[in-house]
Design a binder for these strands. Structure first.
Length: 1080
RNA sequence: GGGCGGUUAGCUCAGUCGGUCAGAGCACCUGCUUUACACGCAGGGGGCCACUGGUUCGAGUCCAGUACCGCCCACCA
């Protein structure tokens, strides 16, 4: 009774059904149990800003690969999925959407309404993201799916913040930040990109106050942002212009830069005297009059002024330029800091008459006023790089504002990490603790540290270089979407502060923590501040409340004392930094309710923390990995994972990163629809070779493709022409189909054009592999009627059975080793090689005669079933769907597989034990015999092909070879006959070639094939072979003639060369003999 | 300017300790409708290992420099 087995594997019909079975059976669920081997991956959180792309696919497939592998190895395996609220990015998208659809801004609808809309948006995105991940086959524990604004995550954020604040590691300071005027928020350096724009360089002149004879009347400065002059508080000159210029001159001479040498010499001659005068004036405490503002500002000495550039003097605007800010910090006793901007980007009261103007208007007004006064010397056209916010795509204004920071540098007295956990330790500071964690000598209390894979050195360098700067981390964002900062602050008189403190719980109670801060970020205990304060001083009081029952009442009390809740929210990375432990219920796992504990009663946090591996891309190392390490160490005293697996960044065929706006981004769903999820996974694993980047050429599916009339379906975007814009320029978002000429859109922004799906034909490879696997298994299934397992000993097995089991054993070891080394491409290639090149191409062909003979088929079928069983297990982590499908079909026909005894098996492959490799299957001698056999068969096939003989025409052959080779070949005469399609063969050291035969010399054998006489062709081939052999022999001979080689190279290498030469000489003899036979 | 990479077959990439390492897949060429698979089978062609030096008996492999390409960070009065 043969059941129907479809001829083709249909991914679309299979994937959903298989995935549902895994879900229904709870295969992904993780609970603490008695197993000691655990494997934990915390999913890097996709943002709720939009659907997943190929980069996420790479990330998720790599994780699923590791998770499935470890699950099969029997580890208690947790893959925690989730999504990130991605504060700025999400709010920006929803605000944009709100504006485009309803024409409203956030201020018009208010905080509550906006947040509500973002939640709705999040719900939509979440659905789509989870659906995409499930299509890919991700086997995460969906019941534990978390969102970074979940109550569980909120609790962790509140607790972590409280502890950092209490330890003095969070402070509020005046800092120059990248201000996004449009979103009215500070953005981190990481969220800023540069764009080259055409701008101007204005040369301004400030009058010197009371110039003395010989002194200049004006000082020239230059700027690209003239409106900032209203905030100038000094003009700087270099303290030693001559020394500096001469140093530069020397450098230019060394470098041989003649133009620069000339320029500097001229400058020293013409300009240095003025600079020296200015330096003297600055040293003398002289001032200039700041025009328009009519403020007297000092000349100061600072090395930030570059005597070789411009006028040699530089205006100092501490509040609006990062470098000037640093100058101010060096001279804060003498110069002030003037902020001229409001948070909405208009000028404030400090700008006097210009108050209320936005930056462009103020710039125009300032330029006009200076021109009128003759203080604008000249204007240059100039290209310049302007910082833009990655989120709103608008220019950044450097802006002085009060922000919250986490102190990353070393602090006096050090930092205690993991307080109260039993893994407590001290470090000089947070950044240093994270640096220590990658030191190979460092170990946490549990014996762990952090390493990067597969390239520990270069990825480690990225991590270390970034941390070594120990820059404080700005964690406040002026947004509505996120974790609101749990601080109440305000300015209080000492009297009111004392009043407030009387009503607060004692610090030891751990309900609230109070600091009195200053603008420099210093924090004093309130009682000390009170003691030091004057009665009329205003003190900045900062109170952090711990989440809990008392919070509400305390908050009311603080409000009653005139404090306000800080409206800012936390940087997104603050909550994601806690991800590895917040999701496990830190600080109190009971928050997870019933899900908190397993059958053994152990809680999630203590069972699954620290985890195992973080899988991510290299751009995330500094943004996220660093911060997870810091927060894990700080809260729990241990690294959140020991391995950081950094996978390749996927680029398109031109080497550009993929993005929607470029139109080269691939939606994984499009690939899955077209090629199947396993095909996608196959190719993704192939791409992960260990390189930092992987190119994936992309094509568009022509929207007007029709199999009847349109020759090609796919259009290579690297070669296709762009459409034209209305102005006749190339439109980067549209392309023309080279076959039908139709213009189409790749970004989805142009509704008037048909939209093309972006795919890559590289996934074809994966689809073919799935088909091959399906087809080979089908072969076995079609022959398995009446199959029954019986224990087999070595004596029951045919030689090819022993061979394939031996090869299988090697393949299992190789795949396992490569996976352990984070080498998915090599692991898959080993599995592929065994399955395709050995199992399909040789073994299945060799057993066909046995399979056809019903009386003799049972052993072969049992071996085939066993080998397929193991192959499906090996391939499952890579190709979960097709292997699971075939597993159940195999189980129907052959419920028990194995050789000596049945293999341990399970209903579903996802739970089946990983193959361990069977040492007793290994047989080196049989492998050697089959190598020789394959060599002989290939030689015969090649001879046929060379001479144009039909592949199946039975011919007579002879193999002349030394007895040790001949005897091995003779054992497999039947295979030689069948696979090389021979009618007869003689094998031995002295066999005579059949009459009218043609020959090949192949290593140690000479192979003769009758009935294919073409002396010319054979002679030509042999002559070429002879040339090659002689070349190699000559090279080897030369090497051996080199006394240096013989004396210095290792003996084994020299011996190897000698053997090689002997073999080559022998082969040359035989080829020569054959050639002379042919000619004679 | 600082850091991290890359350059090997037409394309995408392997190549571990310096010594049978000139490799794979795709594409290409020649045969083949061989009852698992034409998404296949059998066979084949194709490379100055970016360039220049150096170390070494021996260099895709180690070192230095050059060119080009990418990413991150900094700077740009």
């Amino acid at each position: 009774m043969t059941m129907e087995i479809p001829k083709q594997y249909e991914p679309a019909a299979t994937q959903g059904r298989i995935y549902r079975r895994w879900l229904e059976k709870g295969c992904f669920a993780a609970r603490p149990d008695e197993r000691r081997e655990r494997y934990v991956i915390m999913m890097p959180l996709p943002n709720v800003t939009g659907a997943l792309h190929m980069g996420h696919a790479m990330d998720n497939v790599m994780q699923d690969l590791l998770i499935r592998w470890h699950r099969m190895r029997g580890d208690n395996t947790l893959w925690m999925p989730g999504i990130d609220h991605a504060g700025i990015a999400t709010q920006a998208i929803v605000e944009k959407f709100l504006f485009e659809t309803e024409g409203k801004t956030r201020n018009e609808i208010g905080r509550e309404a906006l947040v509500e809309r973002i939640w709705a948006w999040k719900g939509e995105q979440e659905k789509q993201i989870i659906s995409q991940q499930q299509q890919m086959g991700c086997s995460c524990d969906w019941d534990r799916h978390r969102f970074t604004l979940d109550p569980v995550c909120v609790a962790a954020v509140r607790e972590a913040f409280f502890r950092l604040f209490r330890d003095g590691l969070i402070y509020r300071g005046d800092r120059l930040v990248n201000w996004d005027v449009h979103l009215q928020t500070a953005v981190s350096d990481d969220e800023v990109y540069k764009e080259t724009v055409q701008g101007h360089f204005w040369h301004l002149e400030y009058p010197v106050v009371d110039p003395r004879p010989g002194e200049p009347e004006k000082v020239a400065v230059a700027t690209t942002r003239p409106e900032t002059m209203l905030g100038d508080t000094a003009v700087a000159c270099h303290p030693d212009p001559r020394g500096e210029l001469e140093r530069q001159l020397e450098e230019a001479r060394t470098a041989g830069d003649r133009k620069e040498v000339e320029r500097l010499e001229e400058r020293i001659r013409d300009h240095l005297p003025l600079l020296q005068t200015l330096t003297e004036m600055a040293a003398d405490g002289r001032t200039v009059m700041l025009p328009l503002a009519e403020r007297e500002i000092p000349l100061i000495l600072d090395e930030w002024a570059k005597p070789e550039l411009g006028s040699g003097c530089v205006k100092i605007t501490p509040a609006h330029d990062p470098n000037d800010y640093e100058v101010w910090q060096r001279h804060r006793d003498r110069i002030g800091i003037v902020n001229i901007l409001e948070s909405d980007g208009t000028l404030n009261a400090s700008a006097g008459a210009y108050r209320g103007l936005d930056v462009p208007a103020a710039r125009a007004a300032v330029v006009a006023a200076l021109t009128e006064r003759g203080l604008l010397a000249r204007v240059e056209e100039r290209e310049m790089e302007v910082s833009h916010s990655d989120r709103s795509k608008t220019p950044i204004e450097p802006y002085l504002s009060r922000q919250w920071f986490v102190r990353m540098g070393d602090v006096e007295g050090g930092v205690v990490l993991g307080r109260g956990t039993g893994r407590e330790f001290a470090a000089p500071g947070l950044a240093q603790a994270a640096l220590d964690a990658v030191d190979p000598r460092w170990r946490s209390a549990s014996g762990r540290n952090l390493s990067f894979y597969p390239d520990a050195e270069s990825y480690g360098a990225i991590y270390r270089n970034w941390l070594e700067e120990k820059r404080d981390w700005c964690i406040s964002r002026q947004l509505w979407w996120g974790h609101q900062i749990p601080i109440w602050h305000g300015s209080l008189s000492p009297e009111r502060l004392a009043d407030l403190l009387d009503g607060m719980p004692a610090p030891e109670e751990g309900l609230a923590w109070v600091w009195v801060g200053d603008a420099d970020g210093r924090q004093l205990p309130p009682r000390d501040a009170l003691a030091a304060a004057d009665a009329d001083e205003e003190l900045e009081v900062q109170v952090c409340l711990r989440a809990g029952d008392a919070e509400e009442e305390l908050a009311q009390r603080l409000l009653g004392h005139g404090l306000e809740r800080d409206p800012d929210v936390l940087d997104t990375w603050f909550s994601s930094a806690l991800w590895p432990h917040s999701t496990l219920g830190w600080p109190d796992p009971e928050i997870l309710g019933d899900a908190a504990r397993g059958p053994t009663g152990e809680d999630l946090l203590s069972y699954y923390y620290p985890g195992s591996c973080l899988v991510t891309g290299r751009d995330i190392i500094t943004l996220w990995v660093v911060r997870m390490i810091i927060m894990g160490l700080y809260n729990l005293g241990d690294v959140p994972f020991t391995d950081c697996f950094v996978h390749a960044t996927i680029l398109d065929g031109k080497g550009e990163t993929m993005s929607k706006s470029k139109g080269n981004g691939i939606d994984p769903s499009a690939i899955i629809d077209r090629y199947g999820a396993d095909a996608m996974r196959y190719q993704i694993c192939n791409l992960q070779t260990g390189a930092h980047y992987a190119r994936l050429p992309v094509q568009a599916v022509c929207p007007s493709y029709d199999p009847g009339t349109h020759p090609e379906e796919l259009i290579d975007l690297g070669e296709a022409e762009h459409g034209k814009t209305l102005h006749g320029d190339d439109n980067l978002f549209t392309y023309l189909c080279p076959h039908c000429g139709i213009e189409f859109d790749v970004s989805g922004t142009l509704a008037r054009l048909p939209r093309a799906t972006i795919v890559s034909d590289r996934f074809e490879v994966g689809r073919r592999f799935c088909t091959k696997l399906y087809s080979a298994t089908r072969f076995a299934l079609l022959n398995l009627d009446g199959y029954r397992f019986r224990p087999l000993g070595r004596a029951d097995l045919a030689a090819e059975d022993v061979w394939i089991l031996s090869r299988l054993s090697c393949a299992i070891d190789e795949v396992t080793a490569q996976l352990a080394a984070y080498n998915p491409s090599a692991a898959l290639s080993a599995a592929r090689g065994f399955f395709w090149d050995e199992l399909c191409d040789w073994y299945l062909e060799m057993i066909k005669p046995r399979v056809r003979d019903e009386g003799a088929s049972s052993v072969a079928l049992q071996v085939v079933s066993t080998v397929l069983d193991q192959v499906l297990r090996l391939l499952h982590p890579f190709l979960p769907f097709v292997t699971e499908e075939l597993w159940s079909r195999l189980a129907e026909r052959a419920p028990q597989r194995g050789i000596r005894q049945p293999l341990a098996t399970t209903e579903m492959l996802i739970e089946a034990p990983w193959p361990g490799g069977e040492p007793e299957w290994r047989d080196v001698e049989v492998e050697r015999e089959f190598e020789l056999l394959h060599l002989a068969i290939r030689a015969v096939r090649d001879l046929r092909a060379q001479h144009g003989a039909p592949a199946r025409k039975p011919l007579e052959a002879a193999v002349r070879a030394p007895e040790q080779v001949a005897s091995r070949l003779r054992r497999h005469r039947e295979h030689l006959l069948a696979q090389a399609a021979l009618a007869a063969v003689e094998i031995g050291p002295d066999v005579e070639p059949p009459a009218a035969s043609t020959a090949r010399v192949e290593g140690e054998m000479e192979i003769y094939l009758s009935g294919l006489v073409d002396r010319a062709a054979e002679a030509e081939r042999l002559t070429a072979q002879l040339g090659e052999l002689e070349e190699r022999a000559a090279a080897t001979r030369a090497r051996l003639a080199n006394e240096q080689f013989v004396t210095r190279a290792p003996a084994a290498v020299v011996e190897g060369e000698r053997t090689k030469l002997a073999q080559l000489t022998d082969e040359i003899d035989r080829v020569t003999r054959r050639l002379s036979d042919l000619r004679g």
